[in-house]
Structure formats: structure tokens, C-alpha cells
Nucleic acid binder design. Structure first.
Ligand SMILES: [Mn+2]
Ligand SMILES: [Mn+2]
Ligand SMILES: [Zn+2]
Ligand SMILES: [Zn+2]
Lengths: 136, 136
DNA sequence: ATATTTATCGATAATGATTCTCTGTTTTGA
DNA sequence: TCAAAACAGAGAATCATTATCGATAAATAT
């Protein structure tokens, strides 16, 4: 991630490093607000706008994946910055990766059938996770 | 659609009928704003709030499907009010149904593997449609 | 038919995530 | 050493959606 920024002549500021650290250190798909709260622990004067600017930059260089689950705020995955399916619990709102399903074939089949040049996808399954099922 | 509303003791007002008519008569996945513009042709004093309230109602009784494509405004499908995949052109923004792929098996496989009780999904493929490819 | 209750409407304010703007600071490179 | 460019911070602006609330229309009871 750091290398990718250096390659493209972007500056490595403390604020950016802090955002990178949160993203790289979490597989919980944090929101911008959540990243902001975490970054403020070490850099209390950081602005929320800076978080958004950093996320926009990371999106552009394909180092972070933006996930919209219709929850009115987006989530970010810095661990797997390529399209992949997610599994969201409607009860506890946890978001996990659903790597066990491979949709590249589906995507290829769709492209062949329709003539579309498919460049991206966003796939979210919603339900109740095993833990929340127990909590009836 | 009308029957479903009657069954559940909702009133059939002219405004609601107008919204239903737009939804039933279009497979273009219109936005709330677009529905609003269309409804205003026949009922010029209709409020945008009424459109949203009607859409919320139709969502609740499962007569319309809400689609979020990360475009900052939602789209609605009254023709196929159950989860199904979509194909979105990044150039002309057209949204079409991608019925040729069946994801019920994927969903079942995922449920079995993870223990989730899957109740819904939202699947969007993004790309360039054949028409926009020609326009290069 | 008239009164009463209740759902729905229209207008507009509020909300809240994200983006924009502007100013001051830091980094870069000659 | 110094000008140019990149970046950060603060807060205003945007804009889709929701909430509020008094007015109106439909349903129901008298
Ligand atoms: Mn992920
Ligand atoms: Mn559809
Ligand atoms: Zn859960
Ligand atoms: Zn197109």
C-alpha cells in the first residue's frame, strides 16, 4: 500500500499513514466515521475531510474497495481491494467476506450473453449470522 | 399490485395509483425523482414526499424492489419485486435485469457453508453496454 | 345525510453522509 | 533560500431521504 503510494508520487503524511494502518489492520470493513474515530486516538486534530480525501485517493489507485450496503454510509476494505462478495448480518450489522463463492464464471457468462464489457461488481448477501440466530 | 394493497386495507388514492402506473409501466428502474416528474404530468400538485411514502409502503408489502447502485439515489423495480441481479452501464447509466444468471444455488451454498440464514441479496454488475462500446 | 374518526396528502424543515471551498502549513526541487 | 505544488483542517454546502404537522379526503358510525 505504502509502496503503491510512493510509486505514484503521493506523499506519505502521518494522517495518511494512520488511515492506512486502520485499513490494513482491520477486516471489519470500517466506515469513514469509524476510521476517523480510530485515527483521532493518535492524531486528535485530524479532520474528517482528510479521511474522506485519503479514502478517495486510495480508491483511485485501487488500494481500497468501497462497499455500499444501503446503510446510508459506506464501508471500506483495505485488505482485499478487488471486487468480492460480502455477507451482512441484518441483526448485528457485521460484514464478512464471502470468499467461498466464485463469481468470475458468472461474470464471464454474463458478458458473453449480453455483450457487456464487465469491469466491476458489487455483491451483497443479507441475512442472520449464526450467533444472532442463537440470540432469538 | 392493486389487489395486494386492497387486501391489506390500504387506500387506493389517485397519487398511489399514479405511482403504481409508472412502476408497472416501466422496466427502466426509475428513481424517486423520475417517478415524481412522471406523476406530476397527471397530478401536478403531488409532493415528492408522497412518492417516497408510497415507495416505502410498496417496499413493505414487497411489491417493489429497491436498488442501490452507489449512485447517491435509489432506483425501483415494480416489475420484478424480488431480489435479482442487475447490469449497469457506467456510460449511459442504463440498468437492466440480468435474469440469465441464477444465484439461488450460490445463495444456498453460501448458507450451508457459513450457517447464515440468507434472506436477501443485492447483486450489481457494472460495465459498458454494447451500444456505448460502439460510441468510443 | 351528518358527524366522527382515521389515513393520507402537501409543504416544508430536519437529517446526515459526503463533498466543496478556502486558508494556512508543509514538502519539494531548483 | 524561495517559489510552486501538495496537503491538512475547519466549516459551509449539497442533496437524497425522512420527519413533522396542519389540512384534506376517505371510511365508518350515528
Ligand atoms: Mn471484504
Ligand atoms: Mn430489475
Ligand atoms: Zn449477527
Ligand atoms: Zn451504455
Amino acid at each position: 500500500m505504502i509502496d503503491k503510494l510512493k510509486e505514484q508520487d503521493y506523499r506519505l503524511t502521518p494522517q495518511r499513514l494512520a488511515v492506512l494502518k486502520i485499513l490494513a489492520g482491520s477486516d471489519a470493513h470500517p466506515s469513514a466515521e469509524h476510521i476517523y474515530e480510530q485515527v483521532k486516538v493518535d492524531f486528535p486534530m485530524t479532520s474528517l475531510a482528510t479521511i474522506y480525501k485519503t479514502l478517495t485517493l486510495l480508491k483511485e489507485i485501487k488500494e481500497v474497495l468501497e462497499i455500499s450496503i444501503g446503510d446510508d454510509h459506506n464501508h471500506y476494505d483495505g485488505r482485499r481491494p478487488y471486487p468480492h462478495p460480502h455477507l451482512i448480518c441484518n441483526a448485528c450489522k457485521k460484514i464478512i467476506d464471502a470468499d467461498m463463492v466464485d463469481l468470475s464464471k458468472v461474470s464471464q457468462h454474463l458478458a458473453k450473453k449480453t455483450g457487456y464489457r464487465i469491469t466491476n461488481y458489487q455483491i451483497n448477501f443479507f441475512g442472520i449470522c449464526p450467533l444472532c440466530q442463537k440470540k432469538v
